[in-house]
């Protein structure tokens, strides 16, 4: 596969390490009352869609960027690649 890195252009997927569903960005707050349930869902449950999947790839053999790749799990077609940092910030994550 080829991932079109937003900074570096097209790179072979073999340069990257895969983590999983991009929802892993949404780490719950560990100090709230519902934290146990939130963490269970966050860490263990997956939509695992047959179709478009937003997922995290890490450019380990490259610039160390974490990317959010939108890829179809039926065809492997990639339709969007973003820097995970930008996605996280857009989702309101900060400090």
């Amino acid at each position: 596969m080829i991932i079109n890195h937003p900074l570096l252009g097209p790179r072979d997927a073999a340069e990257f390490v895969y983590l999983g569903d991009a929802s892993l960005i949404n780490r719950p707050d560990g100090l709230t009352a519902d934290a146990s349930g939130d963490f269970y869902e966050y860490l263990y449950l997956r939509d695992n869609p047959a179709g478009l999947h937003k997922e995290l790839w890490y450019h380990e053999q490259g610039d160390r960027s974490w990317l959010v790749v939108t890829r179809n799990t039926l065809t492997h077609e990639i339709t969007e690649v973003e820097l995970a940092r930008d996605v996280a910030k857009a989702q309101g994550r900060d400090k």
């Binding site: 390490v17 983590l19 892993l24 960005i25 780490r27 995290l56 890490y58 380990e60 160390r64 960027s65 974490w66 820097l83 995970a84 940092r85 996280a88 910030k89 994550r93 900060d94 400090k95």
Partner: peptide, 15 residues
Amino acid sequence: FRHMEFCRQCLWPGL
């Protein structure tokens, strides 16, 4: 190192 970059970029990008 990979894990820490994940934490830095994805969990707390504002740090």
